[in-house]
Simulated assay, not measured.
Amino acid sequence: MTEGIAHQRMSMPGQVKGVLAVLIFQILANGFLGYFVLDALSDLESHGAKATNAGLAYFLGYLSFAVAGTLLACVVLTPKRFSWIRPTVITIEVIGIISSVINLISGQLTAVIGFLLAAGVINLLNRADARDWFDH
């Protein structure tokens, strides 16, 4: 057996599997959040009410769907070991950390959960096994 074939059959590290579990939760949460925001705006408009800052709310709703779709692509393609997946996920998680810090400053204590999940994903993706998984 050649080294290339043996390398392709390498099993996925536990850190990467843990990241995938968290990302699946984030996909579901972002999808639900996007649906909830857009549905609430639709309800307001169907009853003749006008939402304050509706443009921003629509943007955030569609952004949630975009993040969920990007994370879904990363989860589905992780077994293929594309090198772009790791930096993409880390970038999304850094944005999540920034968002969590802003929410914490504004008094939303539940933002701690998002902060810890994002920090955990970044930590796991920066370990040697995870880096090797995506770099080869």
Rank of each mutant, 00 (worst) to 15 (best):
T88A: 06
E45H: 13
I105C: 04
S46M: 08
S99L: 09
V19L: 00
W84M: 04
L72V: 08
N103L: 12
G61Y: 02
Q8L: 13
S64A: 15
I5L: 13
A29R: 06
Q108H: 14
V121M: 01
L63W: 12
H7D: 11
L104M: 11
Q8D: 14
P87F: 03
S11M: 12
L23V: 02
T70H: 04
W84V: 13
F134G: 01
T52A: 14
M1D: 10
Y62D: 05
A49G: 02
V112L: 15
T2Y: 07
Q15S: 10
P79V: 05
I98K: 02
I5T: 09
I85N: 00
M12F: 01
V101A: 10
L60I: 11
V67N: 12
G31E: 08
S64L: 10
V37K: 02
I113M: 10
A73K: 02
I90L: 05
G34F: 05
G34N: 10
I92H: 05
R9H: 11
A57K: 07
A118T: 04
A6C: 03
I92N: 05
G14N: 02
E45P: 03
G69E: 09
A111D: 08
I24T: 07
T110V: 10
F59W: 15
I85L: 00
V19Q: 00
R86C: 04
I95R: 06
I98W: 11
G4H: 11
I95E: 13
T70P: 05
L60V: 06
D43C: 01
L60W: 14
A21Q: 00
L71P: 06
L71W: 06
E3N: 09
V75D: 10
F115V: 07
F25T: 03
K17L: 00
G69C: 13
M12R: 12
V76T: 05
P79A: 07
A111K: 13
K80G: 04
Y58K: 10
T70R: 04
A57L: 13
A119F: 08
G18C: 00
A54L: 06
F32V: 14
V121H: 01
R127S: 04
G55R: 03
V101K: 07
W84D: 03
A40Q: 12
I113Y: 12
G69D: 10
Q15M: 00
I122G: 02
L109R: 10
N103K: 09
T2M: 08
R86A: 08
V37W: 00
D132C: 04
A68W: 04
I5G: 01
F134P: 01
V112A: 09
L125C: 09
L23I: 05
R9G: 08
S100Y: 12
P79R: 04
N103W: 03
G107V: 09
P13Q: 03
E3C: 05
G18F: 00
I24H: 03
A29T: 11
L72W: 12
F59M: 15
I90N: 07
S100M: 07
A68N: 13
V37T: 12
L116D: 08
N30G: 14
N103H: 06
I24R: 05
R81D: 01
L44A: 15
Y62I: 15
L124G: 00
F36L: 08
F36S: 15
T110D: 08
I122D: 01
L33Q: 13
T88N: 03
E3W: 06
